[in-house]
Every structure is written in structure tokens, then in C-alpha cells.
Simulated scan of single mutants.
Amino acid sequence: MPLYMDVHTLGSAVSMDDVAMAHAADLQTQAAHDVQYLRYWVDEGAGRIFCLVDAPDAEAANRVHREAHGLVADEIFPVKEGA
């Protein structure tokens, strides 16, 4: 299945705790869409969140975010894993 990196730009600071709660909601929602959220990174001060997701397509990944907590990605990029 393809890998995607999605980017959320919130425009204000965000806490790791808030992102962890949103990620937990993604994990509870993902199976219904054949999606697996693998990892995430946070730039707390800039309010940016980056999620690595295994999904059949970008829209499936965004559907999980939409249903889980409503915070859809601003951008989604197909990526390939390197060493």
C-alpha cells in the first residue's frame, strides 16, 4: 500500500498532548478505511503536525482525520521510505 506524509498547519502553537489525543482517535477510526497511521511529528511552536500514513489513497487518509477529530491535512504527499 502507498505511503503518504500529511501536513497540518494550524497557525498557532499546539501541544504534544493534544496531538497524541488526536492520533489516538485516528487509530480508533483507521481500520474502517483500510488505513494505518504509523508515526507523527510535531513542531509545537509553529503549530505544524506531520503524519506518516499507509493508505490506499490520500483521500482515505483524510477521511480518517475527518471522522476521528475533524482536523484534515492541508497537504498530503506520496512518499517512499529510504534508509
Rank of each mutant, 00 (worst) to 15 (best):
P78I: 09
D6F: 09
V42E: 09
H69C: 01
P56N: 13
D34C: 03
E59S: 11
N62R: 15
T29F: 02
F77D: 06
Y40H: 15
C51W: 05
W41G: 11
A61N: 09
T29D: 02
L71Y: 05
D57A: 11
Q28T: 08
V72D: 13
A32Y: 01
A32L: 10
L27C: 14
V64I: 05
H69T: 02
A13V: 04
D26R: 02
Q36V: 05
N62E: 12
Q30W: 02
L71W: 06
V7I: 15
H23C: 06
E59C: 05
V72K: 04
A46C: 05
A20V: 03
E67W: 00
I49H: 02
Q28M: 09
A46T: 10
V72C: 10
I76Y: 06
V7Y: 10
T29E: 15
A46G: 09
Q36I: 03
H33S: 02
H8S: 09
F77H: 15
G47W: 03
Y37M: 03
H8M: 14
D6C: 14
P56A: 14
D34R: 01
L3R: 14
R39A: 15
R66G: 08
C51Q: 05
V72P: 00
R39T: 14
V53M: 01
A20C: 03
P2C: 09
H69M: 00
E67F: 03
M1Y: 10
Q30H: 06
C51I: 09
V7K: 12
D57R: 14
E75P: 02
G11R: 13
A25N: 00
W41T: 03
A32N: 14
K80W: 10
A73W: 05
R66V: 10
G70W: 01
Q36R: 12
V64H: 00
A46H: 12
L38R: 14
G47L: 04
V72R: 09
W41A: 13
N62Y: 07
M1D: 07
A55P: 02
V35C: 00
V79A: 06
A60P: 03
V53Q: 01
F50D: 07
Y37C: 04
A61W: 04
A58F: 11
T29Q: 13
A13G: 10
Y40R: 10
L3E: 09
R48G: 04
H8L: 13
G82E: 05
P78T: 14
D43Q: 08
L52V: 12
L10N: 02
Q30N: 03
E81P: 01
L71K: 03
Q36G: 01
D17R: 13
G70Q: 05
A13F: 08
L38D: 04
D34T: 04
D6R: 11
V19G: 09
V14E: 06
M21R: 14
T9N: 13
V72F: 04
A13R: 07
